[in-house]
Write a protein that binds this DNA or RNA. Sequence first.
DNA 1: CCTACCGATCGGTAGG
DNA 2: CCTACCGATCGGTAGG
Lengths: 199, 199
Amino acid sequence: MIDYSEMKGMKTSKRKLEILATAAKLFRENGYLATSVRDIAYSVGIEPSSLYNHISSKEQLLVEICFSCADQFMEGMTAISSSGDSPLTKIQKVIELHLRIAEENPTSITVFSDDWIHLPPDKRAEFVGKQKSYESAMREIVSEGINKGIFANISSAVAVKTIISALRWTHYRRKSLTKEEKIRQRGEISQLLLNGLCN
Amino acid sequence: MIDYSEMKGMKTSKRKLEILATAAKLFRENGYLATSVRDIAYSVGIEPSSLYNHISSKEQLLVEICFSCADQFMEGMTAISSSGDSPLTKIQKVIELHLRIAEENPTSITVFSDDWIHLPPDKRAEFVGKQKSYESAMREIVSEGINKGIFANISSAVAVKTIISALRWTHYRRKSLTKEEKIRQRGEISQLLLNGLCN
DNA sequence: CCTACCGATCGGTAGG
DNA sequence: CCTACCGATCGGTAGG
């Protein structure tokens, strides 16, 4: 039998991806701790012990799901920060980044939001570090906008916390939107937050 | 021995209140499922089985914590809705309501926000019903503001979801603020959200 | 990928 | 409020 998981260039087998997707779905429905490895295995259609041919632990699934989302946010923020756009355009792009990630990862984004607290201590610290770094980059943008007189002179920390928090509800949206609805909603959310931020 | 828990007019004994406060603190730190009845008992300073002289189940603690917050929100919203204030003032009062509840209940508000999903099915349905009713009342206010031309003409559902979500980060704030900081932060959050909402 | 099984821990009860 | 204890379930392993 060929062990596909060891093939070069094929880091995650189809089975592994299936397990990850199933776990994310169950974690979203019931939470990480309320989901047992038995739940995941039976949902995939194998015996619980067989899971361990593909994963090393239940925790590892949580780690992979959380960091997959975190990395998308970090990549997006890096691209936005290093662009030559105005602060206003940058914040608008941040808003679109959150909406896009929530749209493309409807299951894992909820796990990312709600279950990172259950990451093992070292990974949890790493995760919190990335979050802080993300918020710091966003505060930079807001401060730049304030200094240029584009944004109102409020605490950049409060502005960043409020805007990121405001976008979080889109993570829990269940139904997927039509293209028209997406554009309209993106416009309304941007309007609400950017109007509030600007002078 | 007098059973204080049965004394008229004394619905919750001091011990019960101590258990509730301890449970809320532990649920906040580690989550409801990750907190065992043993954790709660030892933190209170009694044996696990002794807890059951004061509570009927671990779930009951969650129910009491969640509904204590939910009822505060509902009461606040009812008072605001039935006041004769303008839509703008009403929304400002809603913002102040969230900030005040988060400030006064720093531990239970987190449990309310994050662990209601683990309520038993009937209580969970009741909880979700209250949330929907709360949002519906707030949509009424926003719609009134739009009709009067005070607020921008956006979907009231999107506006309400975004504003409530925006205020949620204050639930997780760890340090308590000085009176000055509170006033300043309330002003900044109100400015951001009300400016965004208004025409 | 399965059968068989493990020690640990869970929420909760009996009885005093 | 405690000692003693229960059945259920947990994540995970041995061995094939």
